[in-house]
Design a protein around this nucleic acid. Structure first.
Lengths: 182, 182
DNA sequence: CGTATATATATCAGAATGATATATATAATC
DNA sequence: GATTATATATATCATTCTGATATATATACG
């Protein structure tokens, strides 16, 4: 997905600064996508130059000015057009469309070159890590401000439910079949 | 995972050319990782310069020479050292470690901006696509030469089984919960 | 006979990341 | 009370990787 469409999409949930957009990628979204500062800041500048967003500068005593961006009518239209135009190309992305970029799976592929002890530790830690991830996805308590907008989206409930189901399946499979790696 | 370690790992399954290494990424591995020609060829040249692989040039009448690389003892050692040294850092990668880079999930996140009709079509096609993926992972018939080496790895059976289980979970979830997106 | 696909390597523009620079406030640790 | 780490906030840039293109030919398809 184009970085412009993504930034506009996030700004459609409410006005935000570049720093805050980065923060939005630190919740459940972080498992599916993220953008770096090096992408976010230039993108926002370009979107502003083309009037897809407007910007209000809040001067702060000693920190750099906080630049809060608001999506414009023109911006909303561009975002919707882009989403509609590219929708079909996203069908094959994700899990298991397209690619997972899983270095863990690569490690499994070459596990025969590692001591069994090492692999055992790795698999144990993987299970612990996935259990922790599962709790994160199921967690329904309060979250910091900029994550709230994401969390309240109906689609995010759907995605979190899917993620939880997938992790549970993965955990069960690992526990039942890890013996087959030896 | 470093491109060097990955190329060495694939060459540990048998001598291959750059073109053939690219082909190895076109089977089940394609869902987890891949490298482009722009990465593979320079990497092989560097590995050769540092004696981690040797190279035999097979001249072909009118095509470019086929350069077949063989991993050296030094190369095997580097690969194993790298795998062992980085093993723990791969625990948090993949699904759902780290990141899936799912543009499909981003599309779901912004689905409220798309006509219901469009989303319905997208979800239908997604289901069809995943069913097709599932068949691919379950397929046990013959595969072209360079994929055979990958397919015969014990770890690949494990991974394919896991992938199948995950896709089945995803399909079931989608079918039961897609109504919640409206 | 033209078109598409496969073999085979190489290079490079463009894009994205991860790190770093800059500057300060606040919280935690010792 | 001093030091260290973390959080806020933007900007830039070297390095890295991809996706496309260039080059050249063989084979299959209709």
């Amino acid at each position: 997905m184009q970085k412009e469409t993504l930034c506009l999409g996030l700004l459609s949930l409410g006005p935000r600064s570049g720093y805050e957009i980065k923060q939005m990628f630190e919740g459940p979204l972080s498992d599916f996508y993220s953008l770096s500062f090096g992408t976010i800041y230039p993108t926002l500048n370009n979107l502003q130059a083309d009037k897809y967003v407007s910007c209000k500068q809040h001067s702060q005593s000693k920190k750099p000015d906080k630049k809060v961006y608001t999506i414009t009518k023109k911006g909303m239209e561009l975002m919707k057009d882009n989403l509609l135009g590219d929708a079909s190309s996203y069908i094959r992305s994700g899990n298991f469309g397209d690619q997972i970029k899983s270095e863990f799976f690569l490690l499994l592929l070459f596990s025969k070159y590692l001591p069994k002890e090492t692999m055992n530790t790795v698999l144990n830690e993987r299970v612990l890590y996935l259990r922790q991830k599962l709790e994160q996805f199921k967690y329904d308590g309060p979250v910091p401000g900029n994550l709230d907008a994401i969390r309240n989206e109906k689609s995010v409930s759907f995605i979190r439910g899917l993620a939880s189901a997938l992790i549970e399946t993965g955990l069960n499979y690992m526990e039942k079949n890890r013996g087959k790696l030896n």
